[in-house]
């Protein structure tokens, strides 16, 4: 009886030491959860989720303080990826949140007064300009977050939906009837 306890304790001790040693020496540096979540988010920094940017939202998700379905630009695909990563059920986009078509902000050059307020609002520094000089938005860098619309005192910024052109055009899902699908629809 005593021998058994001693042996078990000894085995436990040895294994514990081995595991502890392995933990220190074979540690695999892995992306923390926040980074993984942040990688899935679309980085528009638009704040539509209620957090000031994508990273704060990622942090909130990681701490279970926020739901995974609050990001409209990420769309269904984004929610699915988050659900996969976190091992939770997929859920549709939260109430009152609608995905919008992708757009970029455009400044009306005739109205802009060069107040620099939008420049301060832009989370990705996509607006170029200086005080009292006309501002221009770098379309390639614009995430379409709409954060520059509110601060503009003269409402000279407009969101322009990115229309489909020959370059961005995508092949459509074949709308060709496979038999039983038609039957089901009929």
């Amino acid at each position: 009886m005593i021998t058994a306890i001693v042996i078990m304790a000894a085995i436990g001790l040895v294994l514990g030491i081995v595991l502890g040693w392995a933990e220190v020496h074979f540690r695999v540096a892995e992306d923390p959860l926040v980074d993984k979540i942040d990688k899935i988010l679309p980085q528009t920094q638009c704040g539509q989720c209620g957090f000031p940017g994508c990273r704060p939202y990622a942090e909130a998700i990681a701490k279970h303080e926020a739901d995974i379905n609050l990001c409209p630009p990420g769309g269904e695909h984004g929610i699915r990826q988050l659900a996969d990563l976190l091992g939770v059920e997929f859920k549709p986009l939260g109430a009152g949140k609608e995905p919008k078509p992708k757009a970029v902000a455009v400044i009306d050059e005739n109205t802009c007064i060069g107040c620099t307020l939008c420049i301060q609002a832009c989370p990705v520094d996509a607006i170029i300009g200086a005080s009292k000089q006309m501002h221009v938005i770098v379309a390639d860098a614009c995430t379409g977050c709409e954060l520059c619309l509110a601060p503009c005192p003269v409402d000279c910024i407009e969101m322009q939906v990115i229309s489909e052109n020959v370059n961005s055009w995508k092949w459509r899902y074949p709308v060709f009837p496979i038999h039983h699908e038609v039957a089901r629809a009929a």
Binding site: P42, G53, V124, D140, A141
Partner: peptide, 21 residues
């Protein structure tokens, strides 16, 4: 394939936006 390509483009845009942010 074109959906995959679009997804890659979005991913790159997100990467750029993250850096800029």
């Amino acid at each position: 394939k074109s959906e995959l390509a679009a997804r890659d483009r979005d991913q790159q845009a997100a990467e750029l936006a993250r850096e800029r942010h």
